[in-house]
Amino acid sequence: MTCEQFDQWLDAYLEGGLTPTQQGAMQAHMAECTLCHAHASEMQAVLSAATALPRSIVPPRDLWPDIAARLPARRGVHGSRSVLWSRWVPLAAAAAVLITVTATITYRLSRPAAPGLVLTATAPRAVAGFAADREYVLAAEDLERVLREGRERLAPSTVELLERNLALIDAAIAEARTALEADPANADLRALLWGAHRQKLDLLDRATRLTRS
């Protein structure tokens, strides 16, 4: 085998695409050619480094507001801007949205029970391997701290509504996480989890602003 031939077969060799005979020829060449041996291990290092790269990187800033502002309306079905990014909506309207999300997640997970049955006081631990999940949890905790300090300025009915919705959304987060632990590659479940996190931050953000108004 020539060094040129070795190089031509190297990719298939590293990907396990050669016959046993071809593999043997490659190994025999490496045993006597230090240069090709070095090339092979360097190429193996390139492939390992490629595999080790993070496949998901959180953008340094939230790009959604700019995208939302540029989305052309489609067919007038949802012609009015969504409640989620209007500057202020009453909590009751937000509640409807949250219940929708929770119901969606419950539906996606094929749970027969009504949404929000699994109430948890606070969102439990983050899903292993999902750094963004943890970031959302920390962001929510920050807002919850601010909210606790200002909550006596909110009407009791508002507090009650807020807590009911936070419980619903925490339940949704918990359900999405449980499902993700069983099926970590499921992009739809991840989308639901991030969506629920965002909704929670939106709600907390609006509520904390309400305590300051």
Partner: peptide, 24 residues
């Protein structure tokens, strides 16, 4: 697909990390 931006946002949240990594 029916034009609901809330639903599209859910899709955005689920995929933006991988799309950003690729674009970067």
């Amino acid at each position: 697909r029916e034009g609901d931006p809330d639903a599209f946002r859910v899709l955005y949240e689920g995929h933006v990390g991988r799309i950003y990594a690729l674009c970067l």
